[in-house]
Nucleic acid binder design. Structure first.
Length: 647
RNA sequence: GCUGCUGUAGCUCAGGGGUAGAGCACGUCAUUGGUAAUGACGAGGCCGAGAGUUCAAAUCUCUCCAGCAGCACCA
């Protein structure tokens, strides 16, 4: 007798082993028809898999908003894609095909890459495969059987996968008609359950096992939903998100441009630069309040310093250098200089001037540091990933005992700052010791422990990023998301015991002994360029009043109001408001439309009536109507609203 | 850096072996209009760069360069 507990608490008894499908049928045939898979004691199983013990069970059905259902549908769809591809292109080998957020992909190995045109053909074939409605059949096999099977099929990648599976792993195969794949499952009862609500989205290159020294694979991305409506909604969302792209908005709003003569460099236009300088002003206030001391260090620094810091060894590929850096025999007359890729060695030079006391610590040294890194061409992305950028960098020189406290203080500062830009859900990644590292295990234990204690104390949820720490210490990464759903690391916090050693930084401790400080590398925005890119996307170009490059456009209705409009603009400017006048011989509709497109937060409309009464008609971006205010009240109100968060 | 796609007017894009098109923007003129497009006229292009095929190349081929998507990279 087997007892099955359902999600609502109801219990049902079955004589002997049963299956998810049996349970579904015993509840209702309608349910059985919609069922895709079943969750048995928290694990997702196929509907026809035997349940031999008491269990709690819930049935996964094709319901709106069911993530479990989408997972199954998309995974099924990936298999259908692979079958279709191998049917059309028999010389193709399969590798892996997981589901991802919002869809799935499948990586194939094939001499000749797929083109966009192939996608249509493949999609058509997928519809055929789905129409055949072959059942997905699970089969447990031994390792040797599995290897023999895939060897016979010439599927080298699958063979490699199986060989690398741990001994304890149960190896399962799934067949659909004549097609077979190594797969952990689970799957819906048959390919027909995938339905019609799927679409192949793109082809792209990828690498076997994510390793660029291994074979290049061809990845096909697709997505699938429970019904065509949900698919349409998703595709529309993608289009909407594309409209927030900072590259598009940057052009439309005249903020900046990029051009090929300066790849990875930003040409900031007046409006974009205004955002930048306002942001810089904001950060300077916040850092001053937090006890940082601002410095500035040289852009070009002799190779010697980079050799000492270890950058020359580890990072030379990404550094821009003068002269022939490869020429090891370059004489003293041809000193090799490098554009700084980071600010830390420079900050240590300042720290090292004179003698430091434990009383100076923690010493917080900040710099809006312009850095150059020769990033790989394919990684450049608008103003979010560039070769010349400015970090809101700082280094805190501290005693080892101060690490926890400093971490907490930093997390709190970061949260305050992010909240000012509307980021309250912050993804934090904790990167711990990499395989290749400097420093003893003891030091690492201590550093990681201090970080963990501090982050937990700060109440910030985080995920582990094992082995991804810097070679000199563990780090926290603060990740923000762009309009398309791509993650960007912005803030960072790194504990470093190595650089002070290499560059011989020290302080005199209470007992008169010479000690090494710990260096805490940190950035909050990350870089002004990246953060502004994120801001543009986050606000869809509609920046808050205090950051908007133009805050008020004063637009006239007729030329009668020109003089008054100029007066209004002057009055606004006198209050520190960024105002422009629009005296053009155009209709007010036209002007309002244009300023709305330019996402100017406030439009003050003035006509003869306003001029006579010393008022303005104030219209807020996106608003339906306008407010008549006396000029004095308006000045007061706008100045109050435009105040920066630090003020 | 790797794979695929793309590159035509300031912008968004159509076209396609016989010498270049639209809409918006821009300029001129008329219009003084009360909250998301007033009208007419006009100007604007080495069709990313180089080479090749051809009587003829923006169009076909090749090589570069750049952009986009993804991968890899991001101390």
């Amino acid at each position: 007798m087997i007892e099955i507990t359902l999600p609502d608490g109801a219990k049902r008894q079955y004589d002997g082993p049963t299956t998810g499908m049996d349970v579904a049928l015993s509840i209702s045939p309608g349910l059985a028809k919609k069922a895709l898979a079943v969750t048995v004691d928290g694990q997702t199983w196929d509907l026809d898999r035997e349940i031999t013990e008491d269990a709690s069970l819930s049935i996964i059905v094709r319901d709106k908003g069911s993530d479990e259902a989408l997972e199954i549908i998309r995974h099924d769809c990936a298999h259908v894609l692979a079958e279709a591809v191998q049917e059309l292109f028999p010389d193709t080998q399969v590798t892996i095909g997981p589901t991802i957020e919002n869809g799935f992909y499948y990586d194939f190995y094939r001499e000749e890459p797929f083109t966009t045109d192939d996608l249509e053909v493949i999609e058509a074939k997928m519809h055929e495969v789905i129409a055949r409605n072959a059942p997905f059949k699970r089969q447990v096999v031994s390792r040797d059987e599995a290897i023999a099977l895939f060897k016979a099929k010439g599927e080298q990648f699958k063979v490699e996968l199986i060989e690398d599976l741990p001994e304890s792993e149960t190896i399962t195969l799934y067949t659909q008609g004549n097609w077979i794949d190594l797969c952990r499952g689970p799957h819906a009862p048959s390919t027909g359950m995938v339905g019609k609500a799927f679409k192949l989205l793109s082809v792209a290159g990828s690498y076997w096992r994510g390793d660029s020294s291994r074979q290049q694979l061809q990845r096909i991305y697709g997505t699938a939903f429970e019904d065509p409506k949900a698919l349409r909604v998703h595709l529309t969302q993608l289009e909407e998100a594309a409209k927030r792209d900072h590259r598009k908005l940057g052009k439309e709003l005249g903020l900046f441009h990029l051009q090929e003569e300066a790849r990875g460099g930003v040409f900031w236009h007046p409006k974009g630069w205004r955002i930048y300088t306002e942001l810089e002003k904001y950060m300077r206030h916040r850092l001053d309040d937090a006890g940082y001391e601002e410095v500035k260090t040289p852009q070009l620094v002799d190779r010697k310093l980079w050799e000492e810091s270890g950058h020359w060894d580890k990072f030379r590929e990404n550094m821009f250098t003068t002269g022939d850096a490869a020429d090891e025999d370059a004489g003293a007359d041809e000193r090799i200089l490098a554009l700084k890729p980071m600010n830390c060695p420079g900050h240590v030079q300042i720290f090292n001037q004179g003698i430091r006391s434990y009383r100076d610590l923690p010493l917080k040294m900040s710099e809006f540091g312009g850095c150059h890194r020769n990033e790989p061409s394919g990684s450049l992305h608008g103003i979010m990933r560039v070769r010349a950028f400015t970090q809101d960098d700082a280094h805190i020189f501290a005693t080892p005992d101060q690490v926890t406290e400093q971490t907490k203080e930093f997390c709190s500062l970061l949260q305050t700052i992010y909240a000012d830009f509307g980021f309250t859900d912050i993804a934090v990644k904790f990167s711990d010791r990499p395989e290749v590292r400097a420093g003893t295990d003891e030091t690492w234990d201590k550093a990681e422990g201090a970080l963990r204690e501090a982050i937990e104390d700060a109440g910030l949820p985080y995920t582990m990023n094992p082995g991804e720490g810097a070679f000199y210490g563990p780090k926290l990464e603060f990740v923000l998301r762009d309009a398309i759903g791509r993650d960007w690391q912005c803030g960072t916090w790194q504990v470093d015991f190595v650089l002070p050693e290499r560059l011989n930084a020290n302080y005199i401790a209470e007992d008169g002994s010479k000690q090494r400080p710990v260096m805490l590398h940190r950035a909050i925005l990350g870089s002004f360029e990246r953060f502004i890119g994120i801001l543009i996307e986050n606000y869809a170009g509609k920046l808050p009043l205090w950051l908007a490059p133009v805050q008020v456009a004063v637009a006239t209705i007729t030329t009668d109001a020109n003089d008054y409009a100029k007066e209004v603009v002057e009055a606004l400017r006198a209050r520190g408001i960024r105002a422009v006048s629009d005296l053009r011989n155009e209709k007010i509709n036209y002007k309002v439309r244009e300023h709305s497109h330019q996402k100017i937060p406030l439009v003050a409309v003035v006509g003869r009536r306003e001029a006579d009464e010393q008022t303005i008609a104030l219209r807020t971006l996106g608003g339906k109507d306008q407010e008549m205010m006396s000029l004095d009240d308006a000045l007061e109100a706008i100045a109050a609203q435009a105040r920066a968060p630090y003020a």
